[in-house]
C-alpha cells in the first residue's frame, strides 16, 4: 500500500532517511579512514583522506598488541556459546513447543522469566561459582555464562516457532513408528533453520560484544577477549592511537560479517512477526 504523495513529500522522506543513514555511516567510515593514517595524520587532520594507506598499523597492532590472541579467544568462546544455545535451545524448544506434558507451561515460564533478569544481578554469585570451579581467568567461564543465559531468550523464541510448524510430516513419522529424536533431527531441525539463523545472530553478537563479564572474570592478557583486550591500548598517560584504531575496526567486523550472512533471513524473520517479542 503506497500513498500517492507529491514530489516534495517523497523528497523530504528520502532526505530524512538519508540523513540518518549518513549519521550512521560517516563515523564508521571515518574510523576506517583514521585507522589507515599515520599517527601525526590522525591527530592533525582527522577528516582528510590518508595520503598513503598505512596498512602497517594493522600489522603492528596485530604483532605488538596481541590482537591475534584476543580475536582467537573471542572467536572460539563465542562460537561455542552459540553452539550451546542453538543445540540445547532447539532441543528444549522443540520439546516445549511440540509435546503436551505435565509441567510444560511451568518450564516454559522458567525460561521466559530469565528474559527480564538483569545479567549483572548474577555477577557476584557467578564470580564465586567460577572461583569454586577454578574457571576464573578462563574463557570457558564465558562459554557457560553466554550459553546458559542466552537460553532464556532463545528457548522462548524457538518454542513459539516450533509450536507453529506444520504437523503433517510429524504425524506421518509417528505412524511409521519414528522416535522423537529422529523426528527432531530429520524433520523439526531443518524446518527451524531460518529462525536458528536469527537466534544465532543475537547470541553471537551478545557473546562477542560482551564486556562486563570478561572484565570481571578474565585477568591475564593471553586469556582476554577482544573487548577487554582493547583496554590495554589505553595507557595511563598515552593512548596508542595507531594501534587502538585498527583494533577497533577489526573487533567490529565479525559481528557485522555474521549479520551480512544472515541479514536476509533475520530481517524477514523479524518483519514477518516470527521474532515477535
Amino acid at each position: 500500500m503506497r500513498w500517492r504523495s507529491d514530489f516534495w513529500v517523497s523528497g523530504l522522506q528520502y532526505l530524512i532517511l538519508g540523513l540518518w543513514g549518513l549519521i550512521v555511516l560517516i563515523p564508521l567510515l571515518n574510523l576506517l579512514m583514521l585507522s589507515l593514517k599515520s599517527l601525526p595524520g590522525i591527530v592533525a587532520r582527522p577528516f582528510s583522506l590518508p595520503s598513503t594507506l598505512h596498512f602497517s598499523n594493522y600489522v603492528n597492532a596485530w604483532k605488538l598488541g596481541d590482537l591475534g590472541i584476543y580475536l582467537f579467544n573471542t572467536a572460539w568462546m563465542s562460537v561455542l556459546a552459540v553452539a550451546v544455545v542453538l543445540g540445547l535451545g532447539s532441543l528444549a524448544g522443540y520439546v516445549l513447543g511440540r509435546f503436551d506434558f505435565k509441567g510444560n507451561r511451568f518450564l516454559y515460564l522458567v525460561f521466559l522469566a530469565g528474559l527480564a533478569l538483569p545479567i549483572q544481578m548474577i555477577a557476584v554469585p557467578y564470580f564465586g561459582m567460577m572461583e569454586a570451579l577454578n574457571l576464573i581467568n578462563s574463557p570457558w567461564s564465558l562459554v557457560l555464562l553466554y550459553g546458559a543465559s542466552g537460553l532464556s531468550f532463545s528457548v522462548f523464541i524457538l518454542t513459539a516457532f516450533a509450536r507453529n510448524l506444520p504437523t503433517e510430516l510429524e504425524e506421518a513419522a509417528w505412524v511409521e513408528g519414528a522416535t522423537p529424536t529422529y523426528v527432531y533431527w530429520r524433520i523439526a531441525l531443518p524446518l527451524m533453520r531460518p529462525i536458528l539463523a536469527s537466534v544465532g545472530l543475537f547470541n553471537f553478537v551478545s557473546a562477542w560484544n560482551g564486556f562486563f563479564f570478561p572484565l570481571i572474570l578474565l585477568t591475564s592478557r593471553h586469556n582476554m577477549t577482544i573487548t577487554v583486550g582493547i583496554l590495554s591500548f589505553i595507557g595511563e598517560h598515552l593512548t596508542e592511537w595507531q594501534y587502538l584504531l585498527p583494533a577497533l575496526v577489526i573487533s567490529m567486523l565479525p559481528p557485522i560479517l555474521v549479520f551480512l550472512i544472515v541479514s536476509r533471513q533475520f530481517i524477514r524473520g523479524l518483519t514477518s512477526g516470527a521474532l515477535k517479542i
Binding site: 528444549a92 530469565g114 554469585p125 561459582m129 546458559a148 532464556s152
Partner: peptide, 19 residues
C-alpha cells in the same frame, strides 16, 4: 522425548537460575 529437554534445562538452571 523428555530427555531432550534435560541438557538445556540443566545448563540454564546451573549457570543462570542458581546464581
Amino acid at each position: 522425548y523428555l530427555w531432550m529437554l534435560i541438557p538445556g534445562l540443566a545448563v540454564y538452571l546451573a549457570f543462570t537460575v542458581y546464581p
